[in-house]
Design a protein around this nucleic acid. Structure first.
Lengths: 111, 111
DNA sequence: TCCATCTGCAAACAAATACTTGCAGGTGCT
DNA sequence: AGCACCTGCAAGTATTTGTTTGCAGATGGA
């Protein structure tokens, strides 16, 4: 995914998603190869529920993908993998992205 | 500012700061040249108080700088300017940054 | 003096986020 | 049946973030 391909709104979503220690560490972990939820939670030392919440956000932002795999012993495992991206942030790039921010001037038109 | 120069924690701060429509538009406006608070607020159509809050965040993140200028007619004007940055975000780069996240595993050790 | 401009900030409220806890369903093995 | 795995999600609470409103101080000119 390239910066030139995303709208301002989507860029905001992506940046907000990346701006979190847990999610950053999750990406770091997945950078070493795909993994399934329970195991990843154990490796990171966080609860599965918490991990799931973050994984859902990462997936919503398009930063990771998931697939359900039936293991040999019948267990359903959900594997997550990184969706490659390359976002070169510069003042000019952001200025360009800002042009495609939705009309209203705040964040997600409140009321 | 380069990605390799910032710690994981600082990167989180920077990304969180960028992940906001108002602040993105402020940067876009400043990309066209420095400006002072009141004028910028008028141009953007937002309140001065709101703009100030966002400018403070941008400055705290090191994305803009400010200087107080005494205009000819004696008014004190606060000019803001962009602090150039170039952050190339990739899974690998984030993984590297994640290594320097502070020990605790959540966001800003709560209690 | 009154008005227009510039600045700054805090208090109060609204809304979005993060996290925990608890419950639910599934398989297979002993 | 009971235990060890796997999954999913919602309710409740704690915390952070965003925004408005209101006040305050300064200058210069009519």
């Amino acid at each position: 995914m390239e910066l030139s391909e995303v709208t301002g709104d989507r860029l905001v979503q992506i940046l907000a998603t990346l701006a979190n220690p847990h999610r950053m560490r999750i990406l770091a972990a997945l950078a070493g190869g795909e993994d399934y939820v329970s195991r990843l939670a154990r490796e990171m030392g966080i609860s599965r529920a918490l991990l799931q919440v973050h994984l859902r956000k990462l997936e919503a932002a398009g930063l990771v993908t998931s697939r359900l795999v039936l293991s040999e012993d019948g267990k359903a495992m959900k594997y997550y993998d990184i969706e490659p991206f390359s976002l070169h942030l510069t003042p000019e790039a952001l200025a360009a992205a800002a042009l495609s921010l939705t009309a209203d001037q705040s964040q997600g038109d409140r009321k």
